[in-house]
Write a protein that binds this DNA or RNA. Sequence first.
DNA 1: TGTTCATTTGGCAATATAGCCAAATATATT
DNA 2: AATATATTTGGCTATATTGCCAAATGAACA
Lengths: 100, 100
Amino acid sequence: MSRKTADLISAKAKILKALGHPSRLFIVEKLAQGEQCVCTLVELLGVDFSTVSKHLSILRNSGIIEYEKRGKMFFYRLKVPCLLKFIDCIEAIALPLSKE
Amino acid sequence: MSRKTADLISAKAKILKALGHPSRLFIVEKLAQGEQCVCTLVELLGVDFSTVSKHLSILRNSGIIEYEKRGKMFFYRLKVPCLLKFIDCIEAIALPLSKE
DNA sequence: TGTTCATTTGGCAATATAGCCAAATATATT
DNA sequence: AATATATTTGGCTATATTGCCAAATGAACA
């Protein structure tokens, strides 16, 4: 495997890893409905502000989301619309498993 | 968030997490080309047999792959064809990032 | 300019993960 | 039945991740 191929695999794995946490996946699905401020996500997830902030930083770092500041608040949004399609595929796999 | 919704999110995250490791993603992409025996994967990855075996167990456990024994060897294959499509999406995100 | 508010960063303890070696398993073949 | 072969499992250490608290940042607004 060439260096280049290995780098690409790692980059892809990094994105999938970023999505592979319940809170982060929840955030991504929420953002799929439209942009959200950090404070809303904190409320929905019921965890500490700092925890959400770190999850957002992991998602940002993997290139999936971006944000914009307006007034005092930070609005996050999905950067990659094709994510939505594939999450349906994952759901088709996960749905039967989650019922066991 | 209802219990049911939370379970589904967790199940999906588990799948994504399983894919979120370079060796496991490599395995999945290799299997997308057709079934492979464990020994081939060991050789391609260049890590210990036991390590590959554990990666396979994680992938099996997340419902993505299955295997069949023929002769002395175990042949693994993808259980979920729709995975392929979405990996292209991930690649579209990852490609520019991996060049930085 | 000083204060306030939304968010991020640093630091910590608990827990999870990765990968190696050695030992166990299971089944094909002799 | 014994042996060989392919794979899995157990156990270990090193490293990474998670989530909280407290402190820092930085911009908006009084």
